[in-house]
């Protein structure tokens, strides 16, 4: 009886306890240090973008198309700001993301509702697995697919439509999952109230369930938009890029990330990468912020 106590006391000397406390303190310090290292890049990235990009940002930057290399070179040699802006990128991004939304949002919501309706059935789980696979698919692969389907067989050349298709495939799983989750959170009584009134099924979905879960759906949609709006790789294989504002979906189109890529590859235009990146990041973060606001209001 007593000897066990002695063993515990002997094996756990004060100096050992002190060592344990010290290593605990070191560990705590390391966690703080590494956490600070973790957030350093995002602070640096945003600071660097603002520092190098803010000078180019003015109204013209959003209302004029990208300059050509020659004009930029002359402006640089005269010590002036590079003329022009990213209008063709903005219109291209809006057109392609808009088309992708038209394809992906209704389809994604319908599949999400289908999953909600069919709970844990085997077929529904199969659909969930496919959704997961699509969500994990690298964006460059989606670009390849859209190239092989649209560029080769439909528009017979690089086109905004092809870009939109690659973005739509990317958006689809990002819409499906939040839709299902949102519908699951709606209390069954709300649905039953509609059924009890003899409301037709599609109207229950459209007029009762969707408005109730609207904020959840919006959160999912905005997050999906914020993800595809910055995509470059799939558009390089599909939309290619364009120097002009064009609304012809069968023709190549630009997008903000594509413009950044072009600027980066042109020594005369390279100074424009910072202001265009700043604008792009601001758009993405704004979408993120709005969706988080909506999500937190819901709770």
């Amino acid at each position: 009886m007593e000897d066990q106590k002695v063993i515990v006391d002997k094996l756990s000397s004060k100096s050992k306890d002190a060592r344990r406390k010290a290593s605990n303190g070191i560990f705590h310090g390391l966690v703080i240090l590494f956490s600070l290292i973790t957030i350093t890049p995002i602070i640096l990235i945003i600071l660097n973008l603002v520092e190098k990009g803010y000078r180019q940002i003015n109204l013209h930057f959003f209302t004029q198309i990208a300059p050509d290399s020659w004009d930029a070179m002359q402006a640089i040699s005269q010590g002036k700001l590079i003329p022009g802006g990213i209008l063709n990128g903005i219109t291209g991004t809006f057109m392609m993301v808009g088309m992708a939304s038209i394809i992906a949002i209704p389809l994604g919501i319908m599949i999400g509702i289908f999953l909600y309706e069919n709970g844990n059935k085997r077929y529904a789980n199969f659909i969930r697995d496919i959704t997961d696979i699509l969500q994990g698919a690298p964006s460059i692969v989606l670009g390849l697919i859209a190239y092989l389907w649209v560029v080769k067989y439909i528009t017979h050349g690089f086109s905004a439509l092809a870009g939109a298709v690659s973005l739509a495939i990317m958006m689809l799983p990002l819409i499906i999952r939040p839709t299902e989750e949102t519908f699951k959170m709606i209390p069954n009584t709300i649905k039953e109230a509609g059924v009890a009134l003899g409301v037709p099924y599609h109207k229950i979905i459209l007029k009762v369930m969707m408005p109730t879960g609207l904020s959840g759906l919006m959160t999912g949609i905005l997050l999906a938009l914020s993800r595809v709006i910055g995509e470059t790789a799939p558009l390089m294989l599909t939309a290619l890029g364009s120097q002009y504002v064009s609304f012809d979906i069968t023709k190549p189109a630009s997008a903000i990330p594509l413009l950044i890529w072009n600027f980066y590859n042109d020594p005369n235009l390279v100074n424009l990468i910072w202001s265009s990146s700043l604008s792009l990041v601001a758009m993405v973060l704004a979408l993120n912020l709005i969706s988080k606001r909506i999500a937190s209001k819901r709770k």
Binding site: S12, D17, A18, R20, K21
Partner: peptide, 8 residues
Amino acid sequence: LSNIELRR
């Protein structure tokens, strides 16, 4: 006492 020792 250290809380380690106390809790033992």
